[in-house]
Amino acid sequence: MKPTLADTDARQGILDRINTKHVDVPPLPDVDVDRVIQFDEPIDKFVEMLAMVGGQAHQVDSQGDVRAVLEEIEVFRTATRIVSLAPESIAGTIDATQIEDPHDLSTVDWTIARGEFMVAENGSIWIDGDTLPHRVLLFIAQYLAIVVPRSQIVSNMHQAYERIENFSARFGVFVSGPSKTADIEQSLVLGAHGCRKLQVFIVGDL
């Protein structure tokens, strides 16, 4: 869509108005990392926070252990449409790379995604959009599991943004727990629009 003359005028008008009023610019502050919380046992904190935000953590030694844990979960055993982006841990039943239109993923039961690292303070996991053949996979699946290397964890969001300082993907997301809502009388309901539940596999040998 081409901007009209009115749009160009608006741009200039807004910038002119701002430029006419000079405001002294104080320096841009940086966060002193020595002044923010760090955890001695970040994995323990992550597990605690993940539980608080409604997710479940599973600490496993190797990728091969993921399947056994998932098999314990009834909604996984009965699932037929599974997209796995971590085939070393578990094989899927649908190859999402072969799908063109994301709408065709609307009936996916499970997505097994790969997380880059964990953030202890809030139980979130960073997912790089480049690992997703379709970003909707994270949100449209009824259930979500994320496999993340045990060694990849930071204490807080300042460290998290330091790690992704140069991320170049078109999309990236911190996922903290399953989708949720409290819009009806502040009653917490898990499974709003996105996944109903979130399983996080903290894998030793990844």
Binding site: N122, M157, I164, E165, V173, S179, A182
Partner: peptide, 29 residues
């Protein structure tokens, strides 16, 4: 700067609803 998000994502959900962060903090580039 992107790193300024470290400050704001820590404050936003905690102030808003008492969550440590929202379920999804999505970055669109």
């Amino acid at each position: 700067r992107q790193r300024d998000l470290g400050v704001f994502t820590r404050l936003l959900a905690r102030s808003a609803t008492g969550q440590p962060i929202t379920s999804y903090t999505s970055h669109f580039n």
